[in-house]
Design a protein around this nucleic acid. Structure first.
Length: 346
DNA sequence: GATTCGTGGGT
DNA sequence: TACCCAAGAAT
């Protein structure tokens, strides 16, 4: 069962142990409905003023924001999103450009394959939906780079549909509020999805505000570290607070970074992004003598950051790893080879 | 189900 | 400083 498609028609029921006693169920239903109202009231008053929440924002603008926000903080998305929507106000306008333009204007948001997939999604929207962002969960899910979360989020936030949205914020809020745990399981479980489905308000308009409100609570109050429980509108109902805010039962393992292929790939893409012509393979794979000997990086052009070339060669990556990283980028379509060398897809 | 895939600000 | 981790998706 996927989060977005699973919108049971029956009445919303609270999570946790199911009692066979009708009066217990009724009591839980009333408690959950109370949470619906309190949480959405709080959201109406405390919601951040984000441009993709503007009533005038197009479904395309909302879809773009959701893709950019995958694993990337709001503050870093904001400026890139504005430039992107100004440049490409519709799926057709983006689809008309080479995919490399999307990668270039993705900037340093990270995970540049998202830019590639967003470009592919725009092309699919043009080819299969007449240029209009589709409104149903299943149609959205079929687009490149749109998974269960984003499909449900766009259907809910852009089209006002009743879909169960489950993101990392919502998972954490549910884990604390109803599960009494500091953090959700390492990966989304069937039980979590079931709980989220049962918690979704029956009323469609309310379900949209519930989705956005729970997500917002997790983003600004019920944060992973140092949650602001004093500012929480549902603190009195929180199982985690009631349990004395016990520590996490496991330690999330951080992603390795230094020395990884991802680091090298990122450095290579940064070079290609800043280049206005194909870059010879040798300049990517072999460290220039002056840079290798520790040339003054500050001599790089001031508006080009610390110097993408210097950053790449500063990694001192083994030749084998440089080769592997470049091969991967070419295979992924993030780069292409031409006569003069390597460039973003044109 | 476990891995891979970027980046930079906060603590 | 080193580590955490942020509106996930694809394989």
């Amino acid at each position: 069962m996927t989060p977005g498609s699973a919108t049971s028609p029956g009445p919303a029921r609270p999570a946790g142990r199911t009692s066979s006693l009708p009066q217990d169920r009724l009591a839980r239903d009333l408690q959950v409905r109370d949470l619906h109202l309190r949480l959405t009231d709080w959201f109406a008053e405390a919601a951040r003023d984000l441009p993709w929440r503007d009533p005038g924002c197009s479904p395309w603008g909302i879809l773009v924001s959701e893709v950019m926000l995958q694993q990337t903080p709001v503050v870093r998305v904001l400026p890139v999103w504005r430039e992107w929507l100004d440049r490409w106000p519709s799926p057709a306008s983006l689809a008309a450009e080479p995919s490399g333009a999307a990668v270039r204007h993705w900037g340093r948001l990270g995970y540049p394959r998202r830019a590639l997939r967003l470009h592919a999604a725009a092309a699919a929207i043009v080819a299969q939906h007449g240029g209009a962002v589709p409104s149903t969960y299943d149609e959205l899910l079929s687009l490149p780079g749109i998974g269960t979360y984003t499909a449900a989020a766009v259907a809910s936030f852009a089209f006002g549909r009743r879909e169960t949205v489950v993101d990392t914020n919502i998972r954490r809020v549910h884990a604390r509020l109803f599960g009494g745990a500091a953090l959700p399981a390492p990966a989304l479980t069937a039980a979590e999805t079931k709980r989220a489905v049962e918690l979704l308000p029956d009323d469609t308009a309310l379900s949209v505000r519930w989705n956005a409100g729970v997500m917002e609570l997790g983003a600004v109050v019920c944060t992973a570290r140092n949650p602001l429980c004093d500012a929480c509108p549902v603190r009195d109902a929180c199982a985690w607070v009631a349990a004395g805010r016990p520590a996490p039962e496991y330690v999330p393992k951080g992603q390795a970074w230094a020395g990884t292929d991802r680091q090298v790939r990122g450095a290579i893409v940064a070079v290609l992004r800043d280049a206005d012509a194909p870059v010879p393979r040798s300049m990517l794979l072999e460290a220039p003598v002056d840079l290798a000997m520790g040339a003054d990086v500050s001599l790089q052009p001031p508006d080009r950051g610390p110097g993408a070339f210097a950053a790449l060669h500063g990694l001192r990556a083994p030749a084998e790893q440089l080769e592997r990283a470049l091969t991967g980028l070419l295979a992924d379509g993030l780069a292409e080879e031409v006569d003069g060398g390597v460039r973003l897809p044109a």
